[in-house]
């Protein structure tokens, strides 16, 4: 079994599309994601998942120098940011891609699949 990060990346268009959604439409997406999450748990693929607040809520901490520097906002200005993610366990990439396809449909967004580094000795 390997772990994969399934990340939901939002760009400006995705944000605009979400803002334009009615509460009912949003509710449909939430319900679909809940159903998907339950399936992940039932089939033993679930490790962790969560949706993130918007990037305005980000604080950057840099303690690589002499002093701890705390700044408002993300470290780099980007046009895309992480909206939410799943961490799943899957036997191989094909299985992870199948989960990602379902997750993408559920959350109505593109999903990026990225393998975790193997733990030493795993």
């Amino acid at each position: 079994m390997s772990q994969y990060l399934l990340s939901v990346i939002h760009n400006a268009e995705d944000m605009a599309a979400m803002d334009a959604m009615t509460p009912e439409e949003l509710q449909t997406v939430f319900a679909a994601v809940d159903t998907f999450n339950e399936r992940l748990q039932r089939e033993g693929a679930w490790v962790f998942a969560g949706g993130l607040q918007t990037h305005e809520a980000t604080t950057t901490v840099d303690n690589t120098g002499a002093e701890t520097v705390v700044t408002d906002g993300p470290f780099a200005e980007t046009k895309e940011y992480l909206g939410g993610f799943w961490i799943i366990e899957a036997p191989d990439l094909d299985a992870a891609l199948r989960w990602a396809a379902e997750g993408s449909k559920a959350c109505a967004n593109r999903v990026e699949v990225r393998p975790f580094q193997e733990e030493p000795g795993a």
């Binding site: 390997s2 036997p91 191989d92 990439l93 094909d94 992870a96 990225r114 393998p115």
Partner: peptide, 14 residues
Amino acid sequence: KGAHIPYRVPEADD
């Protein structure tokens, strides 16, 4: 190797 792309013939559906 890193993403574990399997050495497998896809099943009939795929």
